[in-house]
């Protein structure tokens, strides 16, 4: 029984050696991993910035529309227009598949770009921004209105209340969902192969196509994704515990 196990493990190790390590194929996979990282973190940065903007507009509109409407003036009009634009962006981005958005970015918006990576960063960033925006908005809305009123009655203006009272509480509330979004983004980048980018999935697929051995490359790719996601959730777990220290 044990002999059988040992021999099958060594056979698998030999096969791994043959499929993944010969001819620099593992380096090829690592290059793919590097591209996956670049795309994920680039898209993350764009997504968070965009998400904050959109969430800020949407919540300030929701919270202030009555008072602004009463006061009248240009402020209300600007905010209302921007709110509509944001809603439009959210509908389009969340209503179409990310692969389609990626292809549109590659072939129509940036039709002259010959490198797929910046295009992929842009497309995934825009896509992720919509989801992050809704996560942030939910977070801001979940902070009790009393907190906001307390801030205002202490003499903070709207932005100060947001900055010092609402956002810190919001951040703690949205962290698990935000982490979820990052994990989803990391795995979503596996379609970057559609625009000629060699990411982790595409690299695994190419190795499989070259060796016609599917088991090992696919399992290797799956394990790498799994490890990345586990590291990510572990880091977020540490951050969550740190933020919870002040809870009583």
């Amino acid at each position: 029984m044990l002999d059988k196990l040992v021999s099958s493990v060594t056979a698998l190790a030999d096969e791994f050696q043959e499929v993944m390590l010969e001819g620099g194929r593992f380096e090829f996979l690592l290059d793919g991993l590097g591209n996956t990282f670049i795309i994920t973190f680039g898209a993350l940065a764009i997504g968070i910035v965009l998400g904050i903007f959109v969430a800020a507009i949407r919540t300030s509109y929701d919270k202030n529309k009555e008072s602004l409407k009463l006061r009248g003036g240009i402020g209300y009009v600007i905010l209302a227009v921007m709110n509509t634009i944001c809603k439009f962006y959210l509908t389009i981005t969340r209503g179409t598949p990310v692969v389609v958005q990626l292809m549109i970015s590659y072939f129509i918006i940036f039709s002259l770009a010959d490198n797929g990576i910046p295009v992929a960063i842009f497309a995934f960033g825009i896509n992720s921004g919509a989801y992050v925006a809704e996560i942030f908005r939910a977070g801001i809305m979940s902070v009790d209105h009393g907190q906001f009123e307390a801030g205002r009655s202490l003499g903070f203006n709207y932005f100060q209340t947001m900055r010092f009272i609402v956002i810190p509480q919001m951040f703690k509330a949205v962290l698990p969902t935000l982490c979820n979004e990052f994990i989803a983004l990391l795995k979503e980048t596996s379609v970057a192969g559609y625009v000629g980018v060699i990411d982790l999935t595409k690299a695994g697929n190419t190795i499989a196509g070259r060796t016609f051995e599917y088991f090992i490359p696919l399992i290797t790719v799956a394990v790498i994704y799994l490890v990345l996601v586990m590291i990510l959730s572990w880091l977020v777990g540490i951050l969550e515990r740190r933020l919870r220290k002040s809870d009583r």
């Binding site: 590659y106 072939f107 039709s111 770009a113 797929g116 192969g193 559609y194 000629g196 595409k202």
Partner: peptide, 19 residues
């Protein structure tokens, strides 16, 4: 080499000057 999902996409990329 830039590899695409199917030939039509590769040809589209050629038309756009990407390859």
């Amino acid at each position: 080499v830039v590899s695409y999902e199917n030939g039509a996409v590769a040809v589209e990329a050629l038309k756009k000057g990407k390859v």
